[in-house]
């Protein structure tokens, strides 16, 4: 029986302007490329709303943004970032550099310090010096440049795996050898796929589909192998020197 007293006074409704839509995103920087990935499931509570709602967006030919958290805020945030990048293009006749986009995102997030965008952002792409870069943000704009980062529902499953496999944490190199500082593209893609299949297995909010954006720096030797990769689609916007590809994979739908 419900508490009878609770029926006596009116029920207080407080509108909650936020919700969580699940999913996970991940980005890894290589020496001359970056991979930015996200699953495509969108959910609320125990309901799957759709099996295909992209969380990863190409901003320019050298910048890709992944957004995770409250989907409505995420889509609005991407929209606003893109608008600012367009204004920049009109003013300066070139694309904004990656580190500048990162700072822009910080100020845009912090502008909403007291009514935050409930979104975890990971920005990946190619720096002006041609190096692969990943910037990760919290919802109010704290950010740093890293080599890899996972965020979202399965962050706690994926991040320690990346510590181990990307940063070689808790692994001692054999005598007179050292761990590689950067992994090649094919190893990174394999790790991304493994991370997401693992997360799909153990987290109910992760699954359905996987979208991996690959941003290649000028003259990256992996270009040919990506063009030959079945299922890889080139989405480079202009005749820029950086090239952007999407690779799509199925994930379990249960």
């Amino acid at each position: 029986m419900p508490d009878m007293n609770s029926l006596a006074h009116p029920q207080q409704h407080q509108f909650n302007p936020y919700t969580e839509n699940g999913g996970t995103i991940l980005a890894i920087a290589g020496e001359d490329f970056t991979v930015i990935a996200g699953d495509t499931r969108q959910s609320e509570g125990y309901s799957i709303q759709t099996r295909y709602a992209p969380k990863v967006f190409r901003l320019t030919d050298k910048a890709v943004l992944a957004v995770n958290g409250f989907a409505a805020d995420g889509n609005m945030f991407v929209k606003k970032v893109r608008q600012r990048l367009e204004w920049y293009r009109h003013a300066h006749a070139k694309d904004m550099p990656l580190r500048a986009i990162a700072r822009l995102i910080q100020t845009m997030l912090y502008a909403r310090r007291f009514f935050p965008f409930y979104v975890y952002n990971i920005l990946g792409g190619i720096e002006e010096d041609g190096s692969g870069a990943v910037y990760s943000f919290d919802p109010v704009g704290s950010y740093e440049r890293e080599a890899c980062r996972a965020a979202g529902a399965a962050q706690s499953l994926v991040q320690p795996f990346l510590d181990n496999q990307i940063y070689f944490k808790n692994q001692t190199p054999a005598q007179d050898t050292s761990h590689p500082v950067h992994l090649p593209l094919h190893s990174v893609l394999a790790l991304v796929i493994d991370s997401f299949t693992g997360a799909t297995e153990r987290h109910i909010e992760v699954g359905d589909g996987l979208e991996m954006y690959v941003v290649l720096a000028r003259g990256n030797p992996a270009l040919q192998s990506l063009q030959d990769l079945p299922g890889a689609e080139e989405v480079t916007g202009t005749q820029a020197e950086e090239r952007v590809f999407v690779i799509r994979r199925d994930l379990k739908k249960d």
């Binding site: 936020y18 839509n21 709303q49 759709t50 709602a53 409505a72 889509n75 609005m76």
Partner: peptide
């Protein structure tokens, strides 16, 4: 679909309210 929070999505089947649990 769009709701009071501004959440949007597109799919080949959509159901709101109880329909999301029973009919979907």
């Amino acid at each position: 679909y769009v709701d009071l929070l501004g959440t949007t999505y597109s799919a080949s089947t959509i159901a709101t309210g109880y329909g999301a649990f029973i009919a979907q």
